[in-house]
């Protein structure tokens, strides 16, 4: 039975991605570890502060896993939310699971506790990269309704591998932020087709920013994550130098492009205008022949 990853809550996604019944939560809702900063702003708290963390198995192998709830304050990272993720990453350094799995669904720093959130994001970036140096395999899944933006977009790109759906969105600044700062001519955030062309899974896959592209289906995310449990892990100078060359080349080739179809055309896609309409299998047949390697 197909189940939408986009529509599901964090807990539903998590339950569907890991082996059935295998999830064990750390600092669960009953511990009532909630944000100490929201009450002063008259904002309701959530018993898990918008993120579920714990251990489970995936395809029978041990994983540590976190799932952000985009429905609670946009899944944004505050002090407690960030600290739960940080504890999980540090735990992975000693426990050495087959993977550290992030189900991202977050707009970035939580403004209600902006300073604590910003510092937390920087701690998370450092911790993930440190864990990767130790060989901890970090996998990110992006397909939630809140997308993956701001500080969370940075954290995601610090992972070893990313799985996205076409519906998933990954960027630094959200379209609304750019429109507010620079005007609707720069980025019309209500133009859904434009938003998905620029930030969506297909473009990120073609650019080589995402490693796998799957249907908006919990089981497909699960299968892709399981498949990546044996992918290469680690962070080395050689790998970073290769990435540098790739990013330099991307900038040289596409810096003057105003919209994604121009980039797709230069990559060698025959009918770039059709890309947004192609079903996944047809898209992959086109994309895998010409996309930039991650």
């Amino acid at each position: 039975m197909s189940r939408s990853y986009y529509e599901a809550s964090a807990r539903e996604r998590l339950a569907g991605v890991v082996d059935a019944g295998s999830f064990h939560e750390f600092v669960p809702p009953a511990a009532r570890v909630t944000s100490p900063h929201l009450a002063q702003l008259d904002q309701p708290v959530a018993f898990d502060d918008g993120v579920v963390v714990g251990r489970a198995t995936l395809a029978g192998r041990p994983v540590l896993v976190a799932a952000q709830e985009g429905g609670f304050l946009g899944g944004a990272i505050g002090e407690v939310h960030g600290a739960k993720l940080l504890g999980l990453i540090e735990r992975a350094r000693t426990e050495r699971p087959a993977a550290l799995l992030f189900l991202f669904d977050s707009g970035g720093v939580r403004l209600h506790e902006a300073n604590a959130g910003l510092v937390a994001v920087s701690e998370l970036i450092r911790a993930i990269l440190r864990a990767r140096r130790d060989g901890v395999r970090c996998l990110g899944l992006i397909g939630g309704a809140g997308g993956c933006f701001g500080g969370t977009g940075l954290i995601a790109r610090c992972c070893d591998r990313l799985v996205m759906s076409e519906e998933g969105r990954l960027a630094m600044s959200g379209p609304e932020v750019i429109e507010t700062a620079r005007g609707v001519e720069e980025f019309d955030s209500r133009d859904r087709a434009l938003v998905w062309r620029v930030t969506g899974g297909k473009h990120r896959y073609l650019l080589g920013e995402a490693d796998r592209l799957v249907e908006d289906d919990v089981d497909q995310f699960r299968a892709a994550a399981a498949d990546l449990l044996d992918s290469e892990a680690g962070l080395t100078l050689a790998a970073v130098e290769r990435e540098h060359a790739r990013l330099q080349q991307r900038w040289q080739r596409f810096a003057d492009c105003d919209d994604a179809p121009e980039i797709w055309q230069r990559l060698g896609v025959d009918n770039p205008a059709e890309v947004p309409l192609l079903p996944l299998d047809q898209f992959l047949a086109v994309a895998d022949g010409c996309r930039s390697a991650p």
């Binding site: 440190r130 790109r157 630094m172 750019i178 620079r182 620029v198 650019l207 990435e243 540098h244 105003d258």
Partner: peptide
Amino acid sequence: QRLRRRDELLGLNGYMAHLAKCVEI
């Protein structure tokens, strides 16, 4: 961060994350 569509098209977060990786190395 620069608030431009072009930078986002190229994957600005990926470039910034790359910088963080260089620093970590």
